[in-house]
């Protein structure tokens, strides 16, 4: 494993820890999209089915189990925790997830490496992950003045994607025969969505700064 891949995994892990700590410490999930969290749970469950039949390494297994349990933990907080669930922005978090899930199902059935249950589910999870952040980004744009921890979460997720691109480049040049088109194209789309968001984020941040200047 190269340094980019490891740093990417660690930023991904940190993003989830930051989100959980924010929810636990502030007893609030304001600005967090439950729809995105549910999509991530679907992504992790459909991708990590291989936990049952392939063993890659202890690291790999531990990380997969962490991603699955932490995503369900966040969903539990947002849906069932007595105090946290009341802070959920239900009226603002209205993105229609079917618009993301249905096209991903069709695409996974059409474009995959092998037409088998496990392989199609794996491909579906790759496609869905690339767009799963959209409800969160839209919510963040609607409720712009949320605490910085929510933006830190989104920022760390973006950093994880950027590091994974460096990891793919590194592996492409160092490992003969290393190639995975489905992962590369979805990952690039995912990073592009983040870049678009960061552009908007910086622009409105600067606008807010200018507005708050004393006259």
């Amino acid at each position: 494993m190269n340094i980019f891949r490891f740093a990417g995994d660690m930023t991904h892990l940190c993003s989830i820890v930051v989100l959980l700590l924010k929810i636990e410490a502030t007893k609030s999930c304001a600005g967090v999209s439950l729809r995105t969290q549910e999509l991530y749970a679907v992504v992790f469950v459909s991708r990590y089915l291989d936990l049952f039949f392939t063993f890659i390494s202890v690291y790999n297994t531990v990380m997969k189990v962490f991603f699955i349990t932490s995503s369900f933990c966040i969903i539990w907080y947002m849906r069932h925790h007595r105090i946290v669930s009341q802070t959920y922005d239900r009226e603002q978090d209205t993105f229609r997830v079917a618009f993301l899930v249905v096209p991903c199902i069709f695409l996974a059935l059409l474009v995959n490496h092998e037409f088998s249950m496990v392989e199609v589910l794996w491909t579906f999870s790759i496609y869905l992950e690339s767009v799963a952040i959209l409800p969160q980004l839209i919510l963040l744009q609607r409720t712009f003045n949320v605490d910085t921890l929510t933006s830190n979460y989104v920022f760390l997720l973006g950093a994880y994607r950027a590091l994974y691109i460096l990891n793919w480049l590194y592996r492409y040049f160092t490992e003969p025969g290393y190639s995975q088109w489905i992962v590369w194209s979805s990952g690039t789309l995912q990073t592009a969505i983040y870049c678009d968001f960061f552009y908007y984020y910086v622009v409105s941040w600067r606008k807010n700064e200018r507005l708050s200047l004393p006259s």
Binding site: R5, H113, N167, G177, Q180
Partner: peptide, 10 residues
């Protein structure tokens, strides 16, 4: 085929 794919990433 699927078994040629690198699936050690998360």
């Amino acid at each position: 085929a699927a078994d040629e794919l690198v699936k050690d990433e998360l």
